[in-house]
Amino acid sequence: MTTPLPLLSVSSLMMQFGGILALNDVSFGVAPNSITALIGPNGAGKTTVFNCITGFYRATNGVITLYGREKDTNIGQIIGEKLSVVDFIQPKILLRKLYYKMFGGSHLAARSGVARTFQNIRLFKDMTSLENLLVAQHTQVNRNLLSGLFKTPSFNRAEQLALENAYHWLSVCGLADDANRLAGELPYGHQRRLEIARAMCTKPTLICLDEPAAGLNPNETEALSVLIHTLKNDYHVTVLLIEHDMGLVMSISDHVVVLDHGEVIAMGSPDSVKNDPAVISAYLGIEEEAANS
């Protein structure tokens, strides 16, 4: 909210599962080309926010808007809204809602420029690393059936480009040697990085990383923080991450949003959040003592 025009704005987000209120009136913004961290104790609703932003969950209430390169996207709209009675007297809205109900879905969120990784790694385990990255470029390659069957020059060119792009991201993430290995056979840390490479292959404007440092050793975490900086500085993507490793969060974030029990309890620069009494009492107190001792 420091910049007038954020890349992503989340306003009054509410999410209800049955009788449980998972998110209540969550609002924050993500500035373009920044690193924003979403933190909070377990069960605070961080992953639910992610799932709403990436279009996997339909929020009960609230608006998520992505101010993209070409046009702005309302995430709630493209995944198919519920029909209401008043829609039937507004044919234009009704048609739009029906269209998105039939053809919409979380894939449109990805196409509008939001990429993500998952808390429990979701790679295509029985495919090679390269194939994982090729699948990620599905929307960019030549998908014409006939040109593929006859191997036309334009098809070959597109495949070659996709392959080069894939190799490029493998080397950026330090996985060049794993290109033709099965994703499921890679060491854990490599799998985490492969997931980031795969997300980057979709050419996103915003990448959402769900606990990217979970299960990594200190060296790997260090490499990860370098990688995230590279993504921001060299590739100009905006990073939104959920992370429990406070060392990492405090060192790389430009902006921190703290969630607790489905509500935003604080946000701001890492330093201001660190000293916020509400945050300390809810969550960071232990962290502080550990840092001081």
Binding site: T54, F56, F103, G105, S106, H107, L108, A110, R111, A115, R116, F118, R122, L123, F124, K125, D126, M127, V135, A136, H138, T139, R198, A199, C201, T202
Partner: peptide, 14 residues
């Protein structure tokens, strides 16, 4: 292998 991952990559699963 994984439908959810596919959707997160912009693939229209339907």
């Amino acid at each position: 292998e994984d439908e959810i991952a596919c959707r997160s990559l912009g693939i229209n699963h339907v």
